[in-house]
Computed example of a mutant assay.
Amino acid sequence: MSLAAIAAAAIAIGVSMSFFNAAGQLPGVDRADAVPVDDGETGEISLTEPISPFDDAHVAVARLDPALREAVQSAASDAAADGVELLLTSGWRSADYQAMLLRDAVDEYGSESAAREFVSTPEGSRHVSGEAVDIARVDPALWLEQYGSAYGLCRVYANESWHFELATTPGTECPPMLADASEAG
């Protein structure tokens, strides 16, 4: 079944499109043709095997902006105290890996403009600059959306419930969300 058919069925039964990942796939579904999971250089994290934000040996965490890494780790510690485990499905990504994600999204959606709603260019991606993380699973993402501003972490895109950036001063309100990644430039 194509992604479009799955999305249409999901909409028909009232499931939000925000459950789809940055490549437009359902979280937890690995693509058979994807590049091998993290070769140490791409920053790829398997959707079925998210990693701890404390896994500093993984390039996706190690190459995060230090302030973002510290904020995510602090939030993860406090979430754990609430019984919520924050895990990452994405952090830093190489420009080549980001370009592959965009190419795959163009193939899936049929045009770059449609793909850009979910996947930024390597030049515009906050993942490539180490300034964004994607949170695994709905409940931890909801926890971070509710409490993230205390750490400066904000959900940035209305159509991506998993994507967070250091977007405010800790303890202040998050800025209004953009509709999707195409508005980020």
Rank of each mutant, 00 (worst) to 15 (best):
F54H: 13
A57D: 15
L47N: 01
P66A: 11
A67T: 11
A99D: 11
A80H: 11
F54E: 07
R63P: 01
A105I: 12
A114F: 06
E85A: 15
A75G: 06
P66W: 01
D107M: 05
P50R: 02
A81R: 14
A60M: 09
D82V: 10
Q98T: 11
A71C: 12
D107Q: 08
Q73F: 06
S111P: 03
A105F: 08
V72Y: 05
E49Q: 12
A81Q: 12
S111T: 15
L88E: 05
D82M: 12
E108V: 07
D82R: 13
D65E: 08
F54C: 07
P53C: 08
A80T: 14
S74R: 14
A60K: 01
W92N: 00
E108L: 12
A75E: 09
A76W: 03
L86M: 15
A67N: 13
T89Q: 01
A76N: 02
Y97I: 01
A62M: 04
E85F: 12
D56Q: 10
A80C: 14
R63G: 03
A71H: 04
A75K: 08
S74M: 10
S94P: 09
V59D: 00
P50V: 03
R69Y: 03
D55W: 10
A95M: 02
P53F: 08
R63M: 02
S77Y: 11
A75N: 14
L86A: 08
D78I: 12
Y97A: 05
L102W: 04
L64D: 03
L64W: 07
Q98I: 00
P53S: 11
V61R: 01
P53E: 04
P53N: 04
E108R: 15
D107G: 10
V61D: 02
Q98D: 06
V61F: 03
R116M: 04
T89L: 06
D96E: 15
E70W: 06
I51G: 01
E112S: 12
W92M: 05
S90T: 02
A60W: 02
L87R: 15
D107K: 09
L47W: 06
R116F: 05
G83F: 08
Y109F: 15
G110D: 11
E85C: 09
P53I: 04
S111F: 13
L102E: 07
M100S: 13
A99W: 00
I51K: 00
S74V: 05
V59Y: 02
R116N: 07
W92H: 05
A95G: 06
Q98A: 14
P53A: 08
D65R: 07
V106E: 10
D96W: 05
S111Q: 12
Y97G: 01
